[in-house]
Design a protein around this nucleic acid. Structure first.
Lengths: 120, 120, 120, 120
DNA sequence: GTGGTCTAGACCACA
DNA sequence: GTGGTCTAGACCACG
């Protein structure tokens, strides 16, 4: 399960992975988040690293902590929708950047995205 | 310079990196490719690994070898254009896959690409 | 077992030797190919060299790899027949070249091949 | 110029090479044979090895020695023709052996030689 | 145990 | 100095 990019802090990559769980609905609003130790094992990282990722997610308002019961996904659907929008934006901007990297101009890149044929 | 993803063969990543140099025009057709050993140093890999990448690129028709003079980017513009098209396709499909990963359906993903606002 | 011609890359000679195993039927279609390391020992070469030969044979479509189970001779009889035809052609052309080297003209060489008496 | 097969005595290979010079007419009957030392240099071998090859050729009746003047190609055209015939025979038998090695039967091999289309 | 990958270091031909 | 080849030895993923 550990498949991290070199030289990018692991906890940032963890944050992203978990954000995907949440915005994609695999972890619906209000769901209980698995215990840190379990998550750490699943992702093959040190519990401290996972802890840090969850902390940041909490500061981001995507999860909240109930002192004794554990962590839960926020019930604030708007917040989730916003994050999804952000990630979506990043994906698209990233794609455009890569297209520019292939020698296309910004305009060409935009055009390619808009006109591609949805094969597969 | 070494910034490789974990668990993806380095030589494959090298191939991709060099393809970008070629299709983007940073290495124009007919240009001399830097010597294996120099490229290997730049990318922080073993010369043999770089050699393998170049070998595959040669089989792919993107570069050719002149025994003692070095390697050169192909002058076949069509070949280059084809490869650019392939890479472009991969970028877009990848973006769609990531969007689906965020919980969007295929249709929504396509729509997002087509309608996004291009101001960054 | 190592009996290689000087100044011809060993891996090319390995390729040829293995092609003969396959087209001659000593390694029938679908047969499991011995493990790289074993072949390397048999031929008295480094495993990497043998690996390279097998890689090229795979690109040639004569063998295929099953990740953990090993390599196998292709089941594509047409492909095998084609290769046999190629090798056969090379043998004949080679014979003609040698005959020309003995001072015969192309016509004489052809005639000699066609008219030789088959008792050995 | 040194391009010898491994594990076959070099002097035998030299004999063959020189026989080809003679039977092909590149060294016509009665021609003076270059001095041993010069031949040895050309072929990249030790003069003693070359000497041995020439000795055998002399016993074979293909060259003869004039005490002070050097060595000469025999003027016996029949002898030369015979040797050419021998070499020719060897080439053809060798080709048949290789074809059998590709999985053809003796009959098929003979047929292939007789019916091949003289392309090139 | 299989194949796949990577590194380090060496030697060679060519010009 | 270029590319090409070879060896030795190591580590990894997959089952």
């Amino acid at each position: 399960m550990n498949d991290f990019k070199a030289h990018i802090p692991i906890y940032l990559q963890l944050i992203n992975a978990i954000k995907q769980f949440i915005v994609s609905g695999r972890w619906p609003p209000g769901t209980r988040v698995p215990p840190v130790r379990e998550l750490a094992t699943q992702f093959g990282v040190n519990p401290n690293t996972m802890q840090r990722a969850l902390l940041e997610l909490e500061r981001d308002g995507l999860i909240f902590t109930e002192r004794t019961a554990g962590r839960f996904v926020t019930k604030d659907n708007d917040r989730i929708a916003n994050v999804r929008q952000e990630l979506c934006q990043k994906v698209i901007e990233n794609a455009i950047a890569e297209l520019k990297n292939l020698g296309f101009t910004e305009q060409e890149a935009n055009l390619l995205l808009k006109t591609h044929h949805s094969g597969s």
